[in-house]
Design a binder for these strands. Structure first.
Lengths: 233, 233
DNA sequence: GGCGTTGTTTGCGTTCTCGCAACGTTTATC
DNA sequence: GATAAACGTTGCGAGAACGCAAACAACGCC
C-alpha cells in the first residue's frame, strides 16, 4: 500500500477521526483486489468471511427471492464499507454484492472487525453511524413503497443515483455506470415495461435523456418536483 | 428496583451475558415509568434525550409522511430496547413511538448509552445484534413490498404479530393488543377497505376470527400457505 | 460484415387495488 | 338510555400497473 494511497484513503468516511498510524495498521492487514464487471464479491447466505471497502467502481447489492425475483437493495460508491455482517452479529451475508463495473476493493477477514473496532473507537463509531444511515434509508424505502406510486418512486431512485454518482456532461448529469430499465425496475418494485414507458414520457418532456443502459438527468429540479409531487403532471 | 425485578430482567435479550453486578449498575440509573395507552413515548424528529426498555405492554413505532399518511414501522414487545438513535450516531428519533396499550418502561439518558456499551461489551454487542436484525427486517419489508401483492403482505403481517404476541385462546392465537383494520393497512401499505375485505374473506374460510380491533388467527398453517403462496387461493 | 444476444419500445387486454359513498355496529359520553 | 364518535362492512366505478406478445435497435462475436 503506497503512501499516495493512504493519503487518499484517510479522508474516507469509515476512517474519519482515526490516527494515521492506526489506519496504517489496518491497511497493512488488508488485501487489495480487482473485481471485474458482473462478478460477485460475496453471495447471499454465504459465510461472512470478510468485509470490504470499495475503492473504485460501483457495486450493486441484490437480494433474490425464493421464486427468483431480484430486488436491488442499493448501489455502493467508492469509500463505503460492504459486507459488514459481522459487525451486526450475523454469520452470513444477507445479500449478494456484484460489481456493476470493474472495481477495486480492499478486504479484511471478518474476525479483524472486532479487533479494529475495539482498538480504534472512531472506526467502530463510523461504522455504526453508517449502519444507522442504512437503517434509516431502508425505512424510507418501506415508506416510499407504501405510500408513493411508481412514477415518483422511479424519479426518486434516479435522483438518488444522480446525487451519488452524477457526472456532469453537456446534456446534464449522467449516472456513472450501466443501468438498464430492468435494474431501475428492480430498485423500485415495478417492471421494466413501466420504467420504459416512464422514461420515454420523461424524455419527451425533456426531463431526462437515456439510451441503452444509460441515463442522464437533464432537469433534476423538475424531476424532483415530480418525485415530491407538489405539482400535478 | 426490587430484587424480583432484576431477576426477571436479567434474562432479557439486551442483557444477555452481562454480570449481575453490571446489570445492577445500569438499573440503578434507570427511571421506571408508566405510559398510558395512546400516549407518545417519543416523537419523530425530537431530540433523542433518552433510550428505553419496554418491560410490559406493546409499543407501536410510526412514521408520518409530510402529507399525513401513517406507516407503522413495527410493534415492540416486552424486553426490547427502543429509542436507541444515539447508538447509531443520530441526534433525533427517526420515528414516533406510541403505547398501543398501557405500558411500563425504563428509561436512561442517551448519554449513558456510550458509557454502558464501553463498560459492558455484551450490552453493546447485544444492541448491535438487535440493530442488525432490524436492518434485515426492514430489507425484508422492502422486498415484500416490491414483490408480493396485498393479500400475502397482510397474511404475513398477521403471522408476524401472532408469532410476537400470540396468546392462546379457545379459538386460536389472539394478537394481544388492540389492532384495527387501519393499523393493519398502515403496516402493509394498503387501505382499511382492502384489509376489511380480506378479513371477511378469510373469516368465511375459517382462517381467522376477528372483531373490533381484535384479530385471532385460527389456522396459522393455512395462513402461512397463503402468505408464502405455494398453493392457489 | 453477418448473426446471435441483449436491451428497449409499444400496443392491448386484464387484474388488482384504490377511492368514494353509504350503511351497519360497537363503544364511549353525558 | 339517548346520542355521538369510532370502527367495520360492502357495493360500485375508475385507474394504475401488470403481463403478454411482437417488433425494433444496439452491441459483441466469429
Amino acid at each position: 500500500m503506497s503512501r499516495l494511497d493512504r493519503t487518499l484513503i484517510a479522508d474516507l468516511a469509515p476512517f474519519e477521526g482515526m490516527q494515521a498510524a492506526d489506519l496504517d495498521t489496518m491497511l497493512g492487514q488488508a488485501r487489495s483486489m480487482r473485481v471485474v464487471k458482473d462478478t460477485a464479491i460475496f453471495d447471499q447466505e454465504a459465510e461472512a468471511h470478510a468485509f470490504y471497502l470499495l475503492l473504485d467502481g460501483h457495486v450493486r447489492v441484490v437480494k433474490t427471492t425464493p421464486d427468483g425475483q431480484q430486488v436491488i437493495v442499493r448501489y455502493i460508491s467508492p469509500g463505503e464499507l460492504l459486507g459488514i455482517a459481522h459487525a451486526l452479529g450475523r454469520t452470513t451475508y444477507p445479500a449478494t454484492a456484484v460489481a456493476a463495473v470493474d472495481c477495486v476493493i480492499l478486504s479484511w477477514p471478518s474476525r479483524l472487525w472486532s479487533e479494529f473496532a475495539a482498538a480504534f473507537p472512531s472506526f467502530g463509531a463510523n461504522t455504526y453511524k453508517a449502519v444507522g444511515a442504512r437503517l434509516q434509508d431502508a425505512h424510507a424505502r418501506v415508506i416510499e413503497m407504501s405510500t408513493e406510486q411508481v412514477d415518483r418512486r422511479v424519479a426518486h431512485a434516479l435522483l438518488k443515483l444522480v446525487q451519488q454518482t452524477g457526472k456532469k456532461t453537456e446534456d446534464g448529469l449522467l449516472i456513472d455506470f450501466p443501468l438498464s430499465r430492468q435494474d431501475i425496475a428492480d430498485m423500485t418494485g415495478t417492471t421494466l415495461h413501466t420504467v420504459s414507458r416512464l422514461m420515454t414520457a420523461w424524455e419527451e418532456r425533456g426531463l431526462v435523456k437515456s439510451g441503452r443502459q444509460k441515463v442522464t438527468v437533464v432537469e433534476p429540479h423538475k424531476l424532483l418536483l415530480l418525485a415530491e409531487g407538489q405539482a400535478g403532471k
